[in-house]
């Protein structure tokens, strides 16, 4: 294990590098210096844009930057939610989708496409809005159901409830896919996940949820540490388990719901990144959660970059890339840990 500060510096450097690559590379490549100047000028108007192609400025500010930021926020949300759920559920295989929130968000999105719904006031953004509403309804029902079954809401009950809801909602999605005609491609593309052509509005949709959710989770870092030793022990140590558990569940679900609503169900980020971050600096949630944010956002930016450049001009669904990178990476980690523990 490395020094804590080094861990943060490494993770932050990874994120910055990922952002610069993400903005720079594409059908039109933008020099890194120009990117720095363009973004700098947005923040400090006194920086001159001499020698910067105006087209580059347009590409960076209106296309690439919002895309990279959106990818980053989605990656960060999924990674921190995954890390928190793994700790809370004491299960290294848990991810943000374990509780069925993503299925709920997907039902909302697929329903929007399937029925061609357009809500008043939000118009073109009906899909993310409805998706978030469905995500929140889902977590509400999951928690209410789990509580009804088991007053203490043991993690086993929560996981089982999540499985029940996921399969039921998944069936609803399949049903709609089966019944749909022309919108099939649109639905499948959404489900596979993408952050393309979303623009700044989507960034504005996810940002408040990201800030709120991450803040709540990081606030519960110590409690997550205690709870990963079992709820009873956390209680012995003085943790108000029921309240903290609800907080973590709600915060994680807000993050997941918002992320799925703006980008579809992107897999593997929430499962693998927490493990990577844990290898960087142990399982202590006080540091694991912020590190997951940094690593998760950088990872998804890279994944998106690969998705849109690897067989350009065709853009692959980002979920395919995360799984293609994520699964072997996960396998490697598992293998290494096995040999280490045996050795």
């Amino acid at each position: 294990m490395i020094n804590r500060l080094t861990a943060y510096i490494l993770a932050a450097a990874f994120l910055v590098a990922a952002m610069l690559f993400g903005i720079s590379i594409g059908t039109v490549s933008v020099p890194v210096l120009s990117i720095v100047k363009i973004i700098g000028a947005e923040i400090f108007p006194f920086i001159s844009l001499d020698g910067v192609d105006p087209m580059h400025a347009n590409i960076v500010l209106n296309i690439r930057l919002p895309r990279v930021i959106l990818a980053g926020l989605v990656g960060a949300s999924l990674a921190i939610a995954g890390a928190a759920f793994q700790g809370l559920l004491r299960n290294p295989l848990a991810d943000p989708y374990t509780l069925g929130v993503s299925s709920g968000a997907s039902v909302g999105a697929v329903l929007t496409i399937f029925l061609q719904i357009s809500l008043p006031f939000v118009g073109g953004f009906t899909l993310p809005v409805l998706s978030i509403i469905f995500a929140f309804l889902t977590i509400f029902f999951v928690i209410a159901f789990a509580r009804k079954v088991d007053k203490a809401m043991k993690v086993e009950t929560i996981i089982l409830t999540g499985v029940i809801f996921s399969s039921f909602l998944g069936a609803l999605i399949s049903l709609m896919i089966a019944l749909t005609g022309d919108e099939l491609r649109q639905i499948v593309n959404w489900l596979l996940g993408s952050v393309s052509m979303r623009g700044w509005v989507y960034v504005k949709i996810i940002l408040p949820f990201f800030i709120l959710g991450s803040f709540l989770l990081i606030l519960n870092g110590k409690e997550l540490n205690a709870m990963s030793f079992g709820e009873d022990r956390a209680r012995y140590l003085g943790v108000d388990v029921q309240r903290r558990k609800l907080m973590v569940l709600a915060a994680g679900s807000v993050l997941t719901g918002a992320a799925v609503a703006v980008s579809g169900t992107i897999g593997f980020v929430g499962l693998v990144i927490p493990h990577l971050a844990r290898r960087l600096w142990g399982p202590d949630h006080k540091h694991l959660l912020p590190l997951s944010i940094l690593v998760g956002s950088g990872f998804l930016i890279i994944a998106d970059l690969v998705a849109r450049t690897i067989i350009s001009p065709v853009e692959l669904p980002i979920g395919v890339i995360t799984a293609l990178i994520g699964a072997p990476a996960f396998a490697a980690i598992l293998m290494k840990r096995r040999t280490e523990s045996r050795g």
């Binding site: 793994q86 700790g87 004491r90 299960n91 290294p92 110590k222 540490n225 205690a226 990963s228 030793f229 079992g230 009873d232 022990r233 209680r235 012995y236 140590l237 003085g238 943790v239 108000d240 388990v241 844990r278 142990g282 399982p283 202590d284």
Partner: peptide, 30 residues
């Protein structure tokens, strides 16, 4: 409250679960 009680009563249960590899000091620090 849970915190008030934990300052007076400590418990050493028979079994314990560890899902993640915390160090000894991290564990004791909790």
């Amino acid at each position: 409250s849970a915190k008030q009680l934990a300052k007076i009563v400590a418990v050493l249960p028979q079994h314990s679960t560890q899902t993640f590899s915390y160090t000894v000091k991290e564990t004791v620090s909790l």
